[in-house]
């Protein structure tokens, strides 16, 4: 049972780490092309929700439906394949492979999907251009600034043309100006490709880039009224 027209929907997700319950019956859904902000205080279970939705973590109970699949019932290998093909990820920091150049970092998910190196790097070059970081191709992540790095990460997430983009505090390590720019580029690109975006953030100004917000508090999520 999923809300009509939703691309990704979760019902009654529960997940505990040891004795601490991270999710305690969460419902969630996102439509194609929709940007949903997941907000809430630290430790409220935002990231756990994202991990469950993306099939990285299997919830203790509850279901996640994605495009006709019951994600929570799929094998690890199938979920991995789905993540490679249909999902994109941006995290707060530490996500670029330090020994690969920026270009190779962006090309990495394409290559994991089986693309040829040249083709992958051509696409990567294009996305680095879209995110206004043409000049970092040959550099390693250690040699560029945090803002550039985050743009490279966004380029990497979008290069596979994901149907769902998961962003966990994508601007958490950036100053306002860089954060704003990254969010603008991210949401613009996502709208262009009609990707759904699950945006975990605790910053209202970042959440303001979303179409809708969900607040996770004490392991339960509330879709706030009147937000449509």
């Amino acid at each position: 049972m999923t809300p009509a027209g939703s691309l990704l929907a979760a019902r009654d997700l529960r997940k505990a780490y040891g004795r601490t319950s991270a999710l305690d019956g969460v419902d969630f859904s996102v439509h194609p092309g929709e940007v949903v902000a997941v907000m809430g205080p630290s430790g409220s279970g935002k990231s756990t929700l994202l991990h469950c939705l993306a099939g990285i973590v299997r919830p203790d109970s509850g279901t996640v439906h994605y495009d006709g699949h019951v994600l929570t019932a799929e094998s690890d290998a199938r979920r991995s394949a789905l993540r490679r093909r249909d999902f994109g990820f941006v995290f707060q920091f530490g996500q670029l492979v330090p020994e690969l150049t920026c270009l190779e970092n962006v090309a990495l998910p394409l290559r994991l999907n089986g693309a040829k190196r040249r083709a992958a790097e051509a696409t990567a070059r294009e996305w680095l251009g879209r995110l206004e970081v043409d000049d970092v191709h040959g550099k390693r992540p250690g040699e560029i600034s945090g803002g550039q790095g985050q743009r490279v990460a966004v380029a990497r997430a979008l290069a596979v043309r994901p149907r769902v983009l998961f962003a966990d505090e994508p601007t958490g390590a950036l100053d306002s100006l860089n954060g704003e720019r990254v969010m603008t580029l991210l949401t613009d690109a996502a709208r262009d490709t009609r990707a759904a975006v699950v945006l975990v953030t605790h910053e209202p100004r970042v959440a303001a880039y979303a179409d809708r917000e969900v607040v996770v508090r004490d392991g339960t999520a509330r879709e706030l009224a009147g937000t449509a």
Binding site: A207, E213, L224, G226, T227
Partner: peptide, 20 residues
């Protein structure tokens, strides 16, 4: 508080859209 928060965010979304 939640109702207020939603209202605030709605305005913020509008402003963000205008800004873009």
């Amino acid at each position: 508080l939640d109702t207020q928060r939603t209202e605030h965010l709605r305005l913020m979304r509008g402003l963000t859209e205008r800004k873009r």
